[in-house]
Amino acid sequence: MGSGSGSLLTCVLGDDAVDFLRLIAIGYDEICWNEDWREPPRPEPDHAVLNEPYRRWVEATVDTTIPATAVELVPSPAEMGDADNDDVWCQWVNAAGT
């Protein structure tokens, strides 16, 4: 679900737990703003790669890679109220709110 501060993101954030770990490892400041997901996150001045220690841990622990952008893992992020989406979580939330 969104952040509660204006984000309406309401979708499944990966096919499994590993995909969710990979999503977090990309390094977005907040994953609730899906309009930023088509671009890689901007590096912070004092870090060559965002989330570097966590990224290395995820890659080594579950033998995977980290995608450059979130849409590689969640290609069609749904938002609360989206009537035309395939996301089961968003559909459930929308139905519960009616």
Rank of each mutant, 00 (worst) to 15 (best):
E72W: 08
D82K: 03
E30V: 14
P40F: 11
L21W: 12
V74T: 00
G27N: 05
V12F: 07
V93A: 08
W92H: 07
V18D: 14
G27E: 07
P40N: 09
G4Q: 10
P75H: 02
A25Y: 07
A78C: 03
E39D: 15
T65D: 11
G6V: 02
R42E: 13
A60P: 11
T10M: 14
T69Q: 00
E35L: 06
G97V: 08
S5K: 13
F20Q: 09
A70E: 08
E44K: 13
S7H: 04
A17P: 01
G6W: 03
E79T: 10
C90Y: 06
R56I: 04
F20K: 10
A96Q: 10
L23F: 09
Y28L: 04
V93Q: 11
G6E: 02
D19T: 05
A68K: 12
T10K: 04
D36P: 01
M1S: 05
E35A: 13
A83V: 04
E30L: 15
W89D: 03
F20L: 15
T64Q: 06
M80C: 07
L21Y: 09
N34I: 06
R55H: 03
Y54T: 00
D86T: 09
N51I: 06
E39H: 15
I24C: 15
L50R: 15
P40E: 11
E59A: 09
